[in-house]
């Protein structure tokens, strides 16, 4: 509600590939229950796309499909396809692990490992087999700087990450997700547990990251979606209702449902 922080509207980067992530007739089931109706849309490179919609409408489900985290759930099935840079993520020749290295993810609830801050940040590099201390140190510092956490933790890198505050932990999770330079960053309500100041920091961070990463963010805050995203997708009951530039969605929505949701008449 507060407009204390006035963000300059980001300029959409149109130099990248427009169908960086391409979702084609994608539908999804948890067992017998259809969670996502068939949908088709593209996410352009180096842009921020916000998923909005009422609770339970399938935002997280779609997000988690982008790096195939839903594979951990039993009895799932899908139709259609999702392609990243033209390659299907369901390609039998594609290793899930390498997909997940390409597509980083920040969870709704921060989940740092019970290890030191340093080890948390360099985790992705370590599992890739990087053990060169200099490389790790460098990656640790740049990631923490990008996540706007460096100044707060630089003197206690070897402390347990669980000693950080909730907002710091969430930024640590972001730092951890970008340490191995993925191409795509998925964020599931990254600010839901944060105070306005931390939220502001993370939003600033999203602006900065946008220059390098393609970001998909799920949010319940209309203001946040309006502030950070270039494009917005509105979901309702597992259906993609509308997908367009954020400006269009917020100023001049094409669907009545979208308008109703944005203006707070339901949801």
């Amino acid at each position: 509600m507060s407009n204390a922080r006035i963000q300059p509207r980001p300029v959409a980067d149109t130099t990248g590939r427009p169908d960086f992530i391409s979702i084609k007739n994608f539908g999804f089931w948890y067992g017998d229950k259809k969670a996502l109706e068939s949908m088709t849309f593209d996410i352009p490179e180096r842009q921020v796309v916000a998923f909005i919609g009422p609770s339970g409408c399938g935002k997280s489900t779609l997000l988690r499909n982008l790096n195939r985290m839903n594979d951990l759930v039993d009895g799932i099935s899908h139709e259609g396809d999702i392609a990243i840079k033209g390659q299907s993520i369901y390609d039998p020749g594609l290793e899930v692990i390498s997909l997940r290295r390409r597509v980083g993810m920040v969870f709704q609830k921060s989940n740092p490992f019970p290890k030191s801050i340093y080890e948390n940040v360099v985790f992705a590099l370590r599992v890739m087999g990087v053990n060169n201390r200099a490389v790790l140190d460098e990656a640790c510092e740049t990631s923490l700087r990008k996540a706007a956490l460096w100044d707060e933790v630089k003197d206690r890198l070897n402390d347990n990450a669980l000693g950080l505050s909730g907002g710091q932990m969430q930024r640590l999770c972001i730092a951890r997700a970008i340490a191995n330079r993925p191409e795509i960053l998925l964020m599931d309500e990254p600010c839901s547990a944060l105070d306005p100041i931390a939220t502001g920091k993370i939003e600033e961070l999203i602006h900065e990251l946008k220059t390098q990463f393609t970001i998909v963010i799920v949010t319940h805050s209309m203001q946040q979606a309006a502030r950070v995203s270039d494009r917005t997708a509105f979901f309702y009951l597992g259906k993609l209702i509308e997908y367009d530039t954020t400006e269009k969605i917020f100023m001049n929505p094409g669907q009545a449902q979208t308008e109703a949701y944005i203006s707070g008449r339901f949801g």
């Binding site: 692990i97 997940r100 969870f107 989940n111 490992f113 019970p114 985790f123 992705a124 951890r176």
Partner: peptide, 27 residues
């Protein structure tokens, strides 16, 4: 060991064994 840690590790591109060995067992 909380599931959130396991999915956190998997999402970072760790294999199942790496997840178990570096996250689950120490925890």
């Amino acid at each position: 060991v909380p599931n959130s840690l396991i999915s956190g590790s998997l999402a970072l591109g760790a294999s199942r064994w790496q997840t178990v060995w570096t996250v689950v067992v120490p925890t």
